[in-house]
């Protein structure tokens, strides 16, 4: 926005190639999911809208419990996402605008959690769930990893940019600290929250290794787990299922799984991008 010169042709070429690369797999998958299974294999590059069919989708819905996968993911999204979106900025608020004994230690814990790979805790967490009797439950899917450390870290930066005067003015008016968070801080950081919302939804939607391990019952599996066992399910459930059919159903399921996030993104993309950019400009 600051540089005056017009971009050269090369810039456009670079961006167009990049854009094509970003879009190609998604477009290919969605188009192919509408083709006859046999042509996905014999002619992977051809597109003939005239022969499009929903057959792959119909077959996939019969073979795969994708509905319950969606439902479970939605439940986990609402619960875990809600926890993160409310409590992470709250903790970020504490770190940004207060000074309290033990602050450094607790913030160190946030950094530690940030660095800790999820995968290293999978085994002990699983054993812990077993002691708690939480295997195959929503609380097991929701609580570990809720109030995400990265979210706290990010919100701390965003909230630090909120003017202290605003908070002090509220205090003079007799506002309690929690009231200040709810009625001053949260509204002010809305753009950042929108960014956080998209990121959180993304992370939870894509969560894989933990749901795989902690849900053995099909009825509790999230969408990603259902997707991952899809090929196996399809080949198993239909005796002599051939390769092309499996691919067709796989593409149908993958395409369907793309839709919710793309919709969320398209609706919130302005906030999301601005939210990420926001922290920077205000620092």
């Amino acid at each position: 926005m600051r540089r005056a010169s017009r971009p050269a042709i090369g810039s456009h070429v670079f961006l167009i190639v990049l854009t094509a690369a970003f879009l190609a797999p998604v477009v290919w998958a969605v188009l192919s999911s509408l083709k006859e299974p046999a042509t996905i294999i014999t002619d992977p590059l051809g597109v003939d809208p005239g022969s499009f069919t929903l057959g792959n989708y119909r077959a996939m819905f019969e073979d795969v419990p994708i509905g319950s996968g969606f439902l479970n993911t939605a439940i986990v999204l609402v619960l875990k996402g809600g926890l993160t979106l409310f409590f992470a900025p709250l903790a970020g608020f504490a770190f940004a605008k207060y000074r309290f004994a033990g602050q450094n230690v607790i913030f160190g814990a946030v950094l530690l959690t940030l660095m800790l790979p999820t995968i290293v805790l999978v085994v002990p967490l699983l054993l812990q769930m077993r002691e708690l009797g939480w295997v195959n439950t929503y609380q097991a899917l929701v609580l570990p990893g809720a109030v995400d450390a990265f979210a706290i870290f990010w919100m701390r930066q965003v909230i630090a940019a909120v003017p202290d005067e605003l908070l002090d003015a509220a205090r003079v008016d007799g506002c309690g600290e929690f009231r200040i968070y709810v009625s001053i801080v949260l509204p002010v950081i809305r753009p950042g929250l929108a960014g956080l919302a998209v990121l959180t939804v993304m992370n939870i939607y894509n969560d894989f290794v933990w749901p795989v391990v902690v849900t053995s019952q099909e009825s509790m599996q999230t969408l990603q787990v259902v997707l991952a066992t899809l090929a196996q399910n399809i080949t198993g459930n239909r005796i002599g299922a051939d390769f092309a059919t499996v691919w067709g159903e796989l593409l149908a399921a993958s395409s369907i799984a793309l839709i919710p996030l793309l919709v969320v993104f398209v609706l919130l993309q302005r906030h999301f991008i601005n939210g990420i950019l926001a922290g920077s400009v205000k620092g």
């Binding site: 085994v123 699983l126 054993l127 769930m129 009797g133 295997v135 195959n136 795989v212 053995s216 019952q217």
Partner: peptide, 11 residues
């Protein structure tokens, strides 16, 4: 599924 379920000990 079996190895993790055996370790998880539930269901």
């Amino acid at each position: 599924k079996l190895p993790t379920t055996l370790v998880a000990g539930a269901d």
